[in-house]
Simulated scan of single mutants.
Amino acid sequence: MSEAPAAPHAVSADVARADGIDLLLRPPEPRAGWRVLPARVLAMCAVELQKLRHDRTELYTRAVQPALWLLIFGQTFTRIKAIPTDGIPYIDYLAPGIIAQSAMFIAIFYGIQIIWERDAGILNKLLVTPTPRSALITGKAFAAGVKSLVQAVVVIVIAAVLGVALTWNPLKLLGVAAVVVLGSAFFSCLSMTIAGIVLSRDRLMGFGQAITMPLFFGSNALYPLSVMPGWLQAISKANPLSYQVDALRGLLLGTPSHLALDFAVLLVAAALGIAAASSLLGRLAR
């Protein structure tokens, strides 16, 4: 006659309580990096935009220059017809270039802010958090992109008031937003990279002023590639601003463009900019 199976031993209340306490005290398993990074980027972007919410003066003052470009330069050159624009009014041709220019002018001095954060001790506090450096830089880069979007809306409104024939297709406007954000992300990262090299606000201001005008005039923002000398055409083809302007013209005006190439160049440029600025962030904080 076989014996009946033994009953399982009951778990004592003390053991169960100990297991429960152990679960409470055990730190949660960290999430995978690909899950953490987007959340960190969004958090950093939100922090940057909070600053804009408290002080909108920069947006108002920066709207003056693009308005002057369109009102004075655009309307004057439309009358004299000195620049070939493939049959469209010059002010129409100019408007996407001014959108790109105003976005670049916002982003290109973004490194000054990160130097100020270093001097105030904020950057060191951010670097000791678990947030990856790439997330810090990406958050700041896309915050610059959102600031530039507000500027782009101002320019588009002014252009529409002046009679520029822009598209209002929602999908194309989304493409315009993506182009503005990507371009601004690259130029803000370029500024933060320079900040990591020069380590000084005064030097950064000098570098920013030295490269802003060559980037602008060395692009197709004001005139087509066909009227440039050969050496300037080579510079323009290596200038990310040219691809940003080309994409904006294609989306807003419907002119012939190379959207796939434009987006590819802007994506690669933004990624390289984020990598470069992230690698120099530690040097800036020393």
Rank of each mutant, 00 (worst) to 15 (best):
V15R: 07
W34E: 10
P30N: 04
P28T: 03
A7G: 05
A6N: 06
R35Y: 04
E29W: 13
W34H: 15
P30Y: 01
P30E: 07
L25Y: 03
E29D: 15
R17I: 06
R31F: 09
V11N: 00
G33W: 08
R35W: 08
P27M: 03
P5M: 02
I21F: 13
R26S: 14
P27K: 02
G20T: 02
A6H: 07
D22M: 12
W34T: 11
L24I: 07
G33V: 06
V11T: 11
R17G: 08
R17D: 08
I21C: 04
V36M: 03
A32E: 14
R31A: 14
I21M: 13
A16Q: 13
A13L: 12
I21R: 14
G20Y: 02
P5V: 00
P27H: 02
P5N: 01
A32L: 14
W34N: 07
R31M: 14
V36S: 00
R17L: 14
I21W: 14
A32N: 10
P8Y: 09
R17P: 00
A18S: 11
W34I: 14
I21H: 10
D19Q: 15
V15G: 01
L25D: 06
V15T: 05
G33N: 08
E29S: 15
A32R: 15
P8R: 11
G33H: 09
P30H: 05
R26L: 14
A10T: 11
R35D: 04
R26H: 15
L37F: 12
P27D: 02
D14A: 13
A32F: 13
W34R: 15
E29K: 15
A10N: 08
V11K: 08
D22V: 09
D14E: 15
A6M: 09
D22P: 01
A4M: 10
R17M: 12
H9A: 02
A13C: 06
A18K: 05
P28G: 02
A10K: 11
I21Q: 12
D14W: 03
L37Q: 01
V15E: 05
H9V: 03
V36N: 01
R31Y: 06
W34F: 15
W34Y: 15
G20K: 02
L23F: 11
V11Q: 08
A13V: 12
A6T: 11
G33L: 09
R35A: 10
L25A: 10
P5T: 01
H9E: 00
A18E: 08
A6K: 14
A16G: 07
V11C: 01
A10F: 05
A4H: 06
P8E: 10
L24M: 10
G33C: 01
V11A: 08
A7Y: 08
L37V: 08
A18Y: 03
V36T: 03
S12C: 04
R35T: 05
A4T: 08
P30V: 07
R26N: 15
A18T: 07
G33K: 03
A32Q: 13
A4Y: 04
P8L: 12
D14R: 09
P28S: 07
P5S: 03
R35L: 13
L37R: 02
A18P: 00
G20D: 06
R17Q: 11
L37K: 00
L25R: 13
P30C: 04
S12F: 04
P5C: 01
E29Q: 15
R31H: 14
L23C: 05
